Amino acid sequence: QIFVKTLTGKTITLEVEPSDTIENVKAKIQDKEGIPPDQQRLIFAGKQLEDGRTLSDYNIQKESTLHLVL
């Protein structure tokens, strides 16, 4: 699982696999929060994550925290 922290300070927990794409993660966030993926920007280690890449591409491991910017 990974954590996604929103600007409001809320933390969302997501069940993911390293092979999941960023697009996939955004879809999971939409399921939980109702935020359309095209409004979501995910930041990890100061980098904006691209939809077509996977979590493992960015070396995002379990218990990692991503930041969600709208």
Rank of each mutant, 00 (worst) to 15 (best):
D57K: 03
L42Q: 00
K32D: 03
D57V: 04
D31K: 13
A45W: 08
Q48V: 12
D57R: 03
Q1D: 05
L7R: 10
L49R: 00
V69M: 12
D38P: 06
I35M: 05
P36Q: 06
Y58H: 04
D31H: 12
I22Y: 01
L68Y: 02
V4L: 05
Q61I: 14
T11A: 05
G34S: 05
T8G: 12
L55M: 06
D31Y: 09
D20Q: 05
V16N: 02
T11S: 07
L42F: 03
K10A: 09
S19T: 14
G46T: 04
I60V: 09
S64R: 03
Q61C: 10
Q61F: 09
R41I: 15
G34Q: 06
K32T: 09
I43G: 03
G46P: 01
T8K: 11
K10D: 07
E15L: 13
V25A: 02
G34F: 04
P18C: 10
G34Y: 04
S19C: 12
D51I: 05
I60N: 01
E50L: 10
K5D: 04
L55A: 03
V25L: 12
K28I: 06
I2C: 03
V4E: 00
V25W: 01
P37K: 15
E63M: 11
G9I: 02
D38I: 09
R53Y: 15
D51Q: 05
K26E: 01
K28L: 11
D57S: 12
I29K: 00
Q30I: 02
S56A: 11
Q48Y: 13
K28W: 05
D31R: 11
P36K: 07
L7F: 13
E50T: 06
L66M: 05
D57I: 03
I29R: 00
I22A: 02
E17K: 14
N24Q: 14
S19W: 14
K62P: 13
K5M: 13
E63W: 12
S56N: 10
L68T: 02
D38R: 09
Q30H: 14
A27F: 14
E23D: 08
L42C: 01
D20K: 02
Y58K: 01
Q39I: 11
D31A: 15
L55D: 00
I43A: 06
F44S: 03
L55I: 08
G34M: 05
T65I: 14
E50Y: 07
H67S: 07
D31I: 14
A27Q: 13
E17W: 13
